[in-house]
């Protein structure tokens, strides 16, 4: 097992980011760091992927951005989840449960032949 293929996980980047914003606003690097630690270093999100997700979700109204100086005095863009974002997150969770259930039927520990 190497890295997760980015094609597979792409549809769930939004879900992952929204999850991390549920409790409190955050900024780019902090989110990528949390993704890395929560996934036990199995998923490293690329900076470009993260930024694209931010802009896309902001356009869709799921998150809002604002600038604020961090503790170190550096100007940073923070993101905060909106109510619309929360309901989208719930939708995505249900969608995942369904997906997982469906795919589960086709996954086997059996090896090459699959339907042993």
């Amino acid at each position: 097992m190497g890295e997760i293929s980015s094609d597979v996980i792409r549809g769930y980047n939004d879900t992952i980011i929204l999850f991390l914003l549920l409790d409190s606003p955050s900024y780019g690097y902090e989110i990528s760091k949390k993704i890395k630690s929560i996934s036990e270093e199995k998923y490293l999100i690329k900076e470009t992927t993260l930024y694209s997700a931010f802009t896309r979700m902001e356009k869709n109204g799921y998150i809002e951005s604002y600038t604020q100086n961090s503790e170190s005095g550096k100007k940073r863009t923070y993101y905060r989840i909106t109510d619309q974002g929360r309901s989208y997150y719930r939708e995505k969770c249900e969608e995942w449960n369904l997906t997982k259930e469906v795919i589960e039927h086709f996954i086997t520990e059996g090896g090459e032949n699959g339907n042993s």
């Binding site: 780019g28 690097y29 900076e47 931010f54 550096k74 863009t77």
Partner: peptide
């Protein structure tokens, strides 16, 4: 804006 944001992220990571 994208360039600025990406640079901040890279800088954060680099510093750490």
């Amino acid at each position: 804006k994208a360039k600025e944001e990406l640079y901040t992220m890279m800088e954060d990571k680099y510093n750490e």
